[in-house]
């Protein structure tokens, strides 16, 4: 969406105001937002994705290891980390292995976690909650508590049995 003030640059700040009992929203570019003196606390540069993308390869030194890392290619789709920085979109499922470290860091910032705890998927089977092997008793107990809270009784029963087996 174009900036609703200058109409030229891409809007990056969504501004919601209540005036005379009516809600108005506008999309502003960073410059116009700054000119209007709007605190861009939630602006593009400060969102996890925007900030992260802007910082990737920020160093001016061409020999910096970060810049070299930008040119590593994903074997699956031939995309580089630089491509990701420009588009904000991942090229294929293999990118998540090829760029494991930066994407892991990004996921942690975006979601506060890198660990999927939802439905497990295996082709040919219906997705089902699954207990992961190798978890500590404490993690299992925590998972059990959450399963009970969210009324996932099948999963809870499975977790209970696993905990019992360990004792």
């Amino acid at each position: 969406m174009k900036c609703s003030h200058c109409g030229e640059r891409e809007g990056v700040v969504s501004l919601t105001q209540v005036k005379e009992g009516e809600v108005h929203t506008a999309s502003l570019c960073a410059q116009c937002a700054a000119e209007k003196g709007i605190e861009t606390g939630f602006a593009m540069a400060d969102t996890p994705l925007g900030g992260f993308l802007a910082k990737l390869g920020e160093s001016a030194d061409p020999d910096a290891p970060l810049l070299a890392a930008l040119e590593v290619r994903c074997p699956g789709c031939n995309a580089t980390l630089r491509d990701f920085r420009e588009t904000g979109r991942v090229g294929c499922s293999e990118c998540y292995q090829a760029f494991d470290a930066p994407l892991r860091e990004l996921l942690r910032r975006l979601h506060g976690s890198t660990h999927h705890t939802g439905m497990q998927y295996q082709r040919g089977e219906a997705p089902a909650p699954r207990v992961e092997p190798g978890r500590t008793d404490l993690e299992l107990k925590e998972q059990l508590r959450r399963a009970v809270e969210s009324e996932q009784f099948e999963l809870a029963a499975e977790l209970r049995d696993r905990l019992r087996d360990r004792e």
Binding site: L107, L110, H111, G112, S113, T114, H115, H116, T117, G118, M119, P129, R146, S150, E151, Q152
Partner: peptide, 10 residues
């Protein structure tokens, strides 16, 4: 806002 770290039902 987030999609990772919590189950669908959560």
């Amino acid at each position: 806002q987030t999609t990772l770290g919590k189950s669908e039902l959560e």
